[in-house]
Nucleic acid binder design. Sequence first.
RNA 1: UCCUUGAUAGCUCAGCUGGUUAGAGCGAGUGACUGUUAAUCACUAGGUCCCUGGUUCGAGCCCAGGUCAGGGAGCCA
Length: 504
Amino acid sequence: MYIKDLSLHEEKEITLQGWAANKRESKGLVFIILRDGTGLCQCVVDANKVSEEIFAHAQKVSLETSLSITGTVVKDDRQVGGYELQATSVTIIGGSVDYPIAKKEHGVEFLMDHRHLWLRSQRQWAIMKIRNRIIYSIHQFFQEEGYIQMDAPLFTANASEGTSTLFETDFYGEPSYLSQSGQLYGEAMAMAMGKIYTFGPTFRAEKSKTRRHLSEFWMIEPEMAFHDIFQNMDVIEAFLRKVVSDVLAECKNELAIIGRDTALLENIVKPFPRLTYDEAVKIIKGEENVNGVNAIESLEEELKKVVARMEEVKAEIAEREEKIKVPGMKKGEIGFNQAKIDKLKQELADLEEDQRNIPGWLNSARNFEYGNDFGGSDETVITRLFDRPIMVYNWPHEVKAFYLKRDPNNSHFARGVDVLAPEGYGEIVGGGERETDLTLLVDKINEHKLPMEAFEWYLDLRRFGSVPHAGFGLGLERLVTWVCKLPHVRESIPFPRMYGRLKP
RNA sequence: UCCUUGAUAGCUCAGCUGGUUAGAGCGAGUGACUGUUAAUCACUAGGUCCCUGGUUCGAGCCCAGGUCAGGGAGCCA
């Protein structure tokens, strides 16, 4: 019997099994908030209605004690799930002494050190449910569209794109690398099956310490034969629309728990703006406006807002600190103010962080050099102006991967496309149409100083029945992070692996 | 690798210009209270002030080096 099904058993006696998420006590009454992975339910143990022994068990329950509770399901609109259980019996399964995660705010380091327990908390539960829904919808979309799921190897012989640093490992005495992308293998599989997608872990050994990087993350990489870049963009758009719409429809409760304002997510039904690199650069540099808003000016305003808010927060902290000092205030009220002050100080620290960062971003946007790839801050600058994902395509070929097709209309450009999520989240998808011209491809491999013999099999794909084809890679965690509007990718995966974080 | 901020009780933090015995809230323990929603109230316990060295009559505070962590750049999904 699961908490999510309580509504089907009103006024009946049932048994729930789970963990105590919270407990409150008063004389003769114990309230246990039971958590079973499907929801929360308040269980009331009344001394007048159960034996002394059972009541004693209930009193002994501490945070995260596992237990089974039998009782009658009663409708009660005041409660979390709308129902509560009038207990007739309580059995402790496993005790829990000094559970480390208290019912209050904790710092990131502490929470990350206790990730194995942190996952039990409601917010993390909701995020993982949304992650699960996203994964489900991804498979559903591709399966319904006739894609075959195939997997690329994780051990690879070389740094395939030659760009980022990879994790080196030992493969029976030979050096090998953990895969940074299944892309090239995806192309081979698409030539066999038509349309395929891979879904697996990917590894990058960059020592990145930012809110958007992980060392190990999950990537979805579709590859389609007989698709050009524009059809590719159509697929990306339909795909993201389906996934986000499904989350909106199926995860209302979870989105509410994490406090996600879904207004901007609803815009997913509108067409995604498609900008060329040239257009995007003009917007970043402030030479062109978006709906009358200038990127540079809007960021300057943001900085002013940050400073103004800092003053407000400082004033409120000072005011509350004065209030606490005045004698005669009730203990509860002091505690309330203290908690508020703690929260405000955290906000102030975040604002100070913004105050330090924004000028650098402004500088980088103003002095953006045409021909360069976008940096993290440039993505932030441009996506702030849009209310839905945007697609930027036709990039200077020098800054993109060697396998991207040169634009037939202008050989300066490669037919790559990046999808940038709104609300400052930046790149969630990178893809494009693949080069089919054997000569150009060989030139590119030489230009990037990649070992030709490692790519012979890849070149075979052009030698034997080459066709136009395209695909993309979607970073699952970045998608989850944006959909949930998380402050950092590390909360989007059960056990994040990142620079300096290997345990738990 | 570089820039930047930080490390004080189990947790979140305060600690003035270097000055006596380092504080608060939460949590924990004990007690009171019959419907609580981070319950409330009273009491109790709880400290290697990150490490090493230096300056000083005196260092949580100043200086040097290190360790770890947060944020950012580069790189990327």
